[in-house]
Amino acid sequence: MIDAVVAFFLLGIIAQLLGAKIPFPDGLYKTLSLFLMVAIGLKGGIALQQHVDPALLTMSIAVVAFGLLLPLVAYPLLRYFGQLDKINAGAIAAHYGSVSVATYAVAVALLEAGDIAYEAYFPLFVVLLEMPAILVGLVLAKGNLKVINRAFIKKELVANQSILLMVGSLVIGFVGGDSVQKLTPFFVELFSGVLALFLLKMGLVAGEQLGTLKKNSLFLISFAILMPMLGGLAGTGLGVLLELSAGGIALMAVLGASASYIAVPAAMKESLPEANAGMSITASLGITFPFNVLLGVPFFIALGQYLGA
């Protein structure tokens, strides 16, 4: 039985494939993304305030290491089997080493619908996993470490929209005390509804990407389905090693399986303008995102429950 929120994603794909012109203003899409990032951070901060874990620093280091290793799995597959050049292989590897906030939001919604507990500090892990893959992808693409300069770090680490919003909201949720409660009717109660609308838009975009798959896209489809399976299993392993709860293992798997299509494409556009952005977006948004939402996330939740029991 498919979840109602996820069903909106399917509705979007079907609508796009049928050619239905659903007007979805670009401003609304950006607002919904903003809402989701703030809500995720805020919820995490509120929950973290109630359950601070002393092992958080060790876990954070492990998560960053995970983020550094994932692109190193993707890159040889892209170079050897896909016969892609260094630039495109590095760019796509960066996408798959990073995370999708939308996929994470879907996983959280499904966990909450199933009353499956997860650790409160996961929004912190989402933030930590945004950056490392971008760095590794760039180094692999350029073949040297000189790409990581002060301007890059300032722009991508400090002033990155997703990171700033999520970290900021996390901090506000953590230190806000009782005053944060007046925000919960908006950011917490409305979360599922906003996510449903966001997924409708994602469905429309994914449907459009599917339509642009060209004749020789067999490699891209295969890679975009294999990589989330590999990343998800690696994330599951990490979750078990860190002794996370059932929900925590599932979320770590989902973070490993997901591919960025918001933060990383923007970073790649600036730092690797010669990379083929269409290929990365088609893979991460057109193939991996639907795969994760429809099959991957429910599977990893079931696996997390089995291992966490």
Binding site: L218, S222, L226, L230, F299
Partner: peptide, 21 residues
């Protein structure tokens, strides 16, 4: 071989996942 190996690996992985599922 390179262009067809990955689809085969993906198929086998999907079948493994279906079994696990």
């Amino acid at each position: 071989f390179k262009s067809l190996a990955l689809p085969l690996i993906t198929c086998l992985s999907l079948l493994a996942f279906s079994y696990l599922s």
